[in-house]
Design a protein around this nucleic acid. Sequence first.
DNA 1: TAGGCCATCTGGTCCT
DNA 2: AGGACCAGATGGCCTA
Length: 189
Amino acid sequence: MKTKSRPPRRRAPPQDADAEAAPGERTPDRSPPGAGPDPAKGVRSRAARAAAGARAEGGRRRPGSGPGGRRDSSAQRRLESNERERQRMHKLNNAFQALREVIPHVRADKKLSKIETLTLAKNYIKSLTATILTMSSSRLPGLEGPGPKLYQHYQQQQQAGGTLGAPEAQPQGHLQRYSTQIHSFREGT
DNA sequence: TAGGCCATCTGGTCCT
DNA sequence: AGGACCAGATGGCCTA
């Protein structure tokens, strides 16, 4: 992972790239290998779409639709790079799917979007953390066991504005937030 | 039809 | 140098 922050990226002029670089003919619908009906992709039936070949154009720009499209090694490298990028995104999507499967939520009939998944997961973690803290600190007033250490760690995180972040240290708060969130997703708000 | 979400392409930047 | 990562752009599908 990159931890460094990068300078703001400037973007090359919008895709007139067609004009140059013509990276070869575009790949005809490369639905991901083994991604006929993308398993990770449920309900919103992209599957149907793929089946229908509807995705033939995908959202892709067409690099070298012109005749001169073929272009030696640089075009070849571009294609390979595209393929790697696709694979990378597929892995990312698999990870999203795995995450969806472990966070409890209602509305099983509808797939959580990525943003919903992340948000829900974050609050789920918070609520679990808070619950653990409550349980372990109430267990004993201070000597052994994970309780005090956990609590101290949690407090440090809070002070550092750390990943546990939010100022509501009350487990209730997290739980509350998580469940309202589930609720709002259920209602589609 | 508009808006949300997504997959893919692409080129820049960073890392090994 | 080549691959990984990232974010902008583009266009398709779906739902309200």
